[in-house]
Structure formats: structure tokens, C-alpha cells
Simulated scan of single mutants.
Amino acid sequence: MWLLGLDAGGTKTHCVITDDKGSIVAEGFGGAGNYQVCGIEKTKESILKAIDEALNQSVLEKKNICHAVFGMAGADDEMDLDILNPLAHSIMGDVPVDVVNDTWIGLRSGADDNIGIVSICGTGAAHAGRNKKGESLILRNLDYELGNRGGGGDLVSSALHYAFRSNEGTYLKTSLEDEMKKIFKAKTMDDICYIIRNEEMSDEHRYQIPIAVFQTARKRDPVAVMLLEEMGQTLGQYASGVIKRLHLEDEKIPMVLIGSLFKTGEPLFINAYMKEVLQTAPFAYPVFPTKSPVMGAIGLIIDQRKGC
């Protein structure tokens, strides 16, 4: 029995094929897979590339797959599932496939019993949880206007905001100003302004800016420190909201931390997150999964005990 798990995020798509015990026999990668950001055609292209790469590596065909789970950023509500379910079925054909939000495969990758809270902080941010009664909750995890905040995208906006304010003398001086000039290969902030206003800001620029914030914060730049601590605190508030609504305040619960920003291990960021969480749930503790999120998709299939 061969199982297929997929993790489609804002930056990359990861596919694994395993046996029925969860041992990996092949894997493949594709590009961005959040259709809300990159569009449905790009999402399909990324998924197909990742799956085809894994199938070719394993010398298997789709018909050999018993069951698949797609964990997808952007699978936030019924409106999204009405788009993504047909996409998944068109890709997998007759193979049974479940589409779930990527928070759920993230939680399963870090909690074998699938109980706890998961916070994702990568390109974007998302939060969900499940209690011992089997009750689950996921936040909307959409955009700023609809209550969400956090992730690399927000860090890009904030870092640029304060770099320009530093340049104009309307807030604290920050070395982020010089870092932006390096990233954009610009002599002045006016040059950067021109690049942004002419929509010439590239994906590479967006990738480099959060890295610069973390590096600058480690040098104790006050603005960069503020940005990381503020984001950690904000994400902790979202996680605390999930804890309260699932009535987990008095339990020893794992906080499963997923995504590139949590992977940095930066204490300024993670300590601010946990400080906020511990005010609500004093027995909560952080978990950094040793397995990649895509293995949570495989775990969900095994949990269902579906045979061919």
C-alpha cells in the first residue's frame, strides 16, 4: 500500500510517497502552492511537478497510490475547498484524496496524538488546534483586514516602513536602512522608493528582507528587535485565542511551531510568543517537529486506517 502526502505552501510544494508504515520511498518538490497568492494555475503546476518528481523517483504510477492527503495553505474555508477539492481530484484521478488546511498536517507532524495547538509562521501565518474531546478549531488565517497578521510578508512591509522612517527622521534610526540599500543594490532610499513604486520589487527582495531583520536584531538594533518581539507577541495572542476557545488553559499542551521564521530558533521571537501563550496556558510548551510537515499528511492517512 503506497501513500502520498503533499504540503503546498506559500513558497514551495513538497510531496512524499511512503509505504503503509510511513517510510519514505520517494519525494518531489515544486514551486509556490498557495492559490490565494500565486493563482490556481501556478498552484496546479507546482503540485504536478512535485507529484511527478516523486512518482518518477519511486517508479510508481498514480494508480499505485492507495490514498493521498493534500495539506494546503489557502484551504481556509468552504469557498477555498470548493476550488481546491476539484483541483486535487483532477490531479489524482481515481485515487482517494483529502484536502485539508496545512495547519492540520503541521499539528500532526509535531503531535503523534494529534492534540495541541499549531502556529505556522512562514510566508504567512496561521493557527489551529484540537483538544482531547476531538473538538477542533482553525482561525480564518486570511489577511489583515479579516483579522490575520504575521509571517514573512508582514515583516517585509514593517521593515521597509521603518527603514523609510529612519531615513526621513520620523522614528528611531535603524541599520535596516543600510540593509535595504544592500538588498536592493541601491545608493539611496529614494532609489528603493522608485523600485517599489514601479513594481520592480522581486521575490528575491522579499526573501532577503526577513533574513536581514533577524540578522539585524541579533546585533541588537532596537527597531529590528521591536519587530521580532512584536510579531512573536501577536502570534502568541492568536494561539492564546485558540487555547481559550478549546478550553485548554489548564492542560499541558504542545505548541507545535512550524514555518521558516520559527525554524530560525531566534529567542527574541520565540520567547515573546511563549511569554504571551503562558499567560493563558501556564503548562504549555513549545514543540519544534523533527519531521517535515508533509509527514503530517501521511500521519493523517495512517490514522484513518484506510486500506486499498
Rank of each mutant, 00 (worst) to 15 (best):
S90K: 04
S90P: 04
I91R: 00
M92W: 02
D94C: 09
V95Y: 00
V95R: 02
D98H: 13
V99P: 08
V100K: 03
N101T: 05
N101D: 08
D102H: 10
W104F: 15
I105L: 02
I105Q: 01
G106V: 08
G106Y: 02
L107W: 05
S109Y: 07
G110C: 06
A111F: 07
A111T: 11
A111L: 03
D113W: 04
N114E: 10
N114F: 15
G116Q: 03
I117K: 03
V118L: 06
C121E: 00
C121S: 15
T123R: 00
T123S: 14
T123H: 03
T123M: 06
A125D: 00
A126G: 11
A126W: 04
H127C: 15
A128S: 14
A128M: 11
R130I: 11
N131M: 08
K132F: 07
K133H: 12
E135C: 04
E135T: 08
E135R: 10
S136M: 09
L137R: 09
L137N: 10
I138R: 14
L139M: 14
R140C: 10
R140W: 01
R140K: 09
N141S: 13
L142F: 11
L142S: 14
D143N: 15
Y144Q: 07
Y144F: 13
G147A: 05
G147V: 00
G147E: 01
N148G: 12
N148F: 04
G150F: 10
G150A: 05
G150R: 01
G152E: 00
G153F: 03
L155I: 02
S158P: 00
S158M: 11
L160I: 15
H161S: 10
H161F: 12
Y162Q: 00
F164T: 08
F164W: 09
S166F: 06
N167F: 15
E168Q: 06
G169F: 03
G169D: 04
T170M: 06
T170K: 14
Y171A: 12
L172K: 07
S175R: 12
S175M: 09
S175D: 14
S175T: 14
L176A: 10
L176I: 12
L176Q: 11
L176R: 03
E179T: 02
K181L: 15
K181C: 12
K182V: 15
I183E: 06
K187Y: 08
